[in-house]
């Protein structure tokens, strides 16, 4: 079973990375958005492979169901900038590539040097319910109750901010 899941992981990771690359390369903005959806879906499958079912579905619900829809709406609101006709590379692409590779190497180094990276994870108890544990942790005073409520305030701020910026005030409209 171990090798099978490894093969599946490699395929999914390749698809995810490849479509992430296509997001940047694609000339058409809508195509970019659709490649982004595939990338996000690949991440969801990776969550699923890690037995984090809740995160996998949440990834699809939030990122594909809401955020990518928002991105596509935003693209459609603009006026014909969808296909970029200019050159896709400027003279600095070598520098950008070098810095990206260095960042990636640094991240890999940080993760590998973390002692927890080499420890084999214990298999979870069959009766362990991740969602229930998450729910308990979210509201327990020793857990994340403050971030939980603050998340609500943050969402409220985001909502009000979005309305203020995107919506001109119409005093007579109710």
């Amino acid at each position: 079973m171990m090798t099978v899941s490894l093969i599946v992981f490699l395929i999914v990771a390749l698809i995810t990375l490849g479509s992430a690359l296509m997001v940047v390369i694609a000339r058409n903005l809508v195509h970019s958005a659709l490649w982004l959806v595939l990338t996000l879906f690949g991440v969801a499958i990776l969550f699923g492979l890690l037995q984090a079912g809740f995160l996998a579905v949440v990834q699809v619900v939030i990122y594909i169901g809401a955020i990518s829809i928002l991105i596509i709406f935003a693209i459609m609101l603009t006026r014909r900038i969808a296909s970029d006709t200019g050159p896709r590379f400027n003279e600095n692409w070598g520098w950008a590539l070098g810095i990206s590779l260095m960042m990636f190497a640094a991240l890999v180094w940080v993760i590998v040097s973390w002692p927890g990276f080499h420890v084999q994870a214990q298999p979870l108890d069959a009766r362990f319910e991740p969602v229930v544990e998450l729910g308990k942790a979210l509201v327990s005073p020793n857990g994340y109750v403050l971030p939980f409520e603050l998340a609500s305030v943050l969402l409220l701020a985001a909502l009000i901010g979005a309305i203020v910026i995107a919506w001109e005030r119409k005093p007579e409209g109710r």
Binding site: V30, L34, V37, F41, A44, G53, F54, A56, V57, V58, V60, V61, I64, G65, A66, S68, I69, I72, E129, P130, V131
Partner: peptide, 25 residues
Amino acid sequence: DINVGVLFIVAAGAIGTLGIIMAGW
């Protein structure tokens, strides 16, 4: 019998929505 069945339905619906946008565009 997955433990996130209800949200799975919502997730599948989200991808269906995307299919509609793709068809229209």
